[in-house]
């Protein structure tokens, strides 16, 4: 069901950030840096009254659809889905281990993941297809797609961006985790993606931006966008920091592939537990 608004979202972000580090401690193959940048976005979606969902019934027809297109960078979703009842929390103790369904790149076999997302640039088009389907059926459900800013290099994203505007898919919201980094460098040093809002606006989208680590601001922005049904698809550019919460990752252009020492992780996990 829709989340109870009384939840302390800031505390929930601390908890999810800690649990994401714990997952990475067990499974260093998971992408920690690009997952930590998305914590507030995911918490706002799943606890901030944005997504209609039922953990016990992942494919409940009345749900809002959520596609984690930046699959590798959605490990923070594991503890959220466990907490929301999609699967037992004990599964978090065996991520990437034999017999687990929670892998380094999340697949559609995980309850709560609508699609398989290991390859980038697919989510916006698939979400657009879902949005067309929901409109055709007269459903009030909406579609949310989380992408990374580095993912915007994929041409298929812009095919979907053009399509969604042409089809007036105002039940589709794209959330860009604009953590400024791809794998090998900051985006501004690869191909600068700015001005990002202006680019989406030029394609006919309703675009707003927000501090992606202010969970209440993210929640309010998503609430605003959810209420906007005026014939335009919507995008929230969430300005975030890759590796948010881990000092050795923040600001490092190679944080995507950088391993964090177990000592540093243990210390941070203790800090976030207090």
């Amino acid at each position: 069901m829709t989340a109870v608004p009384a939840i302390d979202l800031v505390a929930k972000c601390r908890e999810v950030r800690r649990r994401t580090m714990e997952v990475n401690r067990i499974a260093p193959e998971t992408r920690l840096s690009s997952s930590l940048s998305a914590v507030e976005i995911l918490v706002a979606l799943f606890y901030g009254g944005i997504l209609a969902h039922k953990g016990a019934e992942p494919l409940w027809p009345g749900r809002d659809r959520f596609i984690a297109s930046k699959g590798h960078g959605s490990i923070a979703l594991f503890p959220i889905l466990a907490d929301r009842g999609y699967f037992p929390p004990s599964e978090l103790d065996r991520v990437c281990q034999e017999g687990s369904f929670l892998g380094g790149i999340p697949d559609g076999i995980i309850p709560g993941y609508e699609t398989t997302n290991g390859s980038l640039g697919h989510g916006p088009g698939v979400g657009a297809g879902m949005a067309v389907a929901l409109k055709a059926r007269g459903s009030e459900s909406q579609v949310f797609v989380l992408v990374g800013d580095g993912e915007l290099y994929e041409g298929s994203v812009w095919e979907a961006v053009m399509f969604a505007a042409a089809r007036r898919l105002d039940n589709l919201t794209l959330v860009v985790d604009a953590n400024q980094g791809a794998m090998l460098d900051f985006c501004r040093n690869i191909i600068d993606l700015e001005p990002m809002l202006a680019r989406f606006e030029a394609f006919g989208w309703h675009a707003i931006e927000v501090d992606g680590h202010d969970v209440h601001a993210v929640q309010q922005a998503l609430q605003h966008l959810s209420s906007q049904r005026q014939g335009r698809p919507k995008v929230l550019v969430a300005r975030t920091i890759k590796g948010k919460g881990v000092p050795s990752l923040e600001g490092d252009p190679l944080s995507h592939i950088k391993a964090v020492s177990s000592d540093e992780l243990d210390a941070l996990i203790r800090e976030y537990s207090s």
């Binding site: 088009g125 657009a128 297809g129 879902m130």
Partner: peptide, 11 residues
């Protein structure tokens, strides 16, 4: 991609 989105919704 759009075809997949529609198909996942049962079309």
């Amino acid at each position: 991609n759009v075809a997949l989105g529609l198909a996942l919704e049962g079309f």
